[in-house]
Nucleic acid binder design. Sequence first.
DNA 1: GTCTATAGATAGATAGAC
DNA 2: GTCTATCTATCTATAGAC
Lengths: 180, 180
Amino acid sequence: MSRPPTSRERILDAFEGILIDDGERAATLEAVASRAEVSKGGLLYHFGSKDAMIDGLIDRLSARVNEDVAQIRAAEEGPIAYLLRTSVTSQSPFDRTIMACLSLAHSAHDEVRSALRGMQDAWFAVVRENVDDPVLARVITLVSDGLYFNSVLRDGGQQISADELDRLVGYLRASAAARG
Amino acid sequence: MSRPPTSRERILDAFEGILIDDGERAATLEAVASRAEVSKGGLLYHFGSKDAMIDGLIDRLSARVNEDVAQIRAAEEGPIAYLLRTSVTSQSPFDRTIMACLSLAHSAHDEVRSALRGMQDAWFAVVRENVDDPVLARVITLVSDGLYFNSVLRDGGQQISADELDRLVGYLRASAAARG
DNA sequence: GTCTATAGATAGATAGAC
DNA sequence: GTCTATCTATCTATAGAC
């Protein structure tokens, strides 16, 4: 387990880091290579073009979505609580991949948006397995989306507090218990 | 009223259009100038730098937020319904300004994020004027944020349907009537 | 107030040595 | 598998004519 990361993984980590910290425009091949501590030529050996590097990030997102859905299903506190708590950015590898893809979503890259829609659809499906009322299920997934939206605009310190998140989770779980 | 738009306004419109259609990277001075049908030099007479153009967009956002908050307060169907219905992107000038600023929010530009946070805070304050329960008020504004989040990932055709939006509005208004 | 021309920096990508 | 050197295109911004 826990081998030292390959160059390929370090490059994707660096790409994510620059996208999160400084946005899409800053994520040049040179900047990514420098942060990953390889040369531009070295980077281009692993990803033959910038588009190929973006495809690599999309593949990583898809893999992590699948792991996440399995964890939502298995969560001890229940799927609603797990989904909402993990929607407040915690700097987990999965969160970082989501935020990085989000910063690419506005560009012409349709594949990134499509992968993020797939993530949303998977989340809605898991919630529906546990919430009969489709309107309430939509409210829950939209609150989750709203928490991600806020992560884009607010740093850790300005995010929703643990207390308020607890009350939010309690409110929506109670609604689900009462209505569906 | 309804004078022909000034060059300044046409430049901001073009800037928004490119940000929405093709993302931040496509919004070069040359592309904006071309879409606004002025030369690069002509653009730089009105906005001395790209940062100045972004500041112009932020000023436009702030002005339109103020108008919107007044309209939420005056809305006949009530503030909750008005806020949620206008959170589904309708291609109104205000929506376009929001989506354009959103595509800049991931970059280093802190002022853009700050202006968007101000918008969210103003919305939350208006909702709180009409919803006593702070948790429910937070749910409502997060659903609104979630709808904007979805607008980034989905075109008009894929967005939430009018029927589902009606059910959503009905559900949250009923919750507010029952609890606060 | 709008234009053309151009400077200076930096982008993505290729070639080829090691 | 990683590097340096280099090509070409494009970016932001300035200068100065009209």
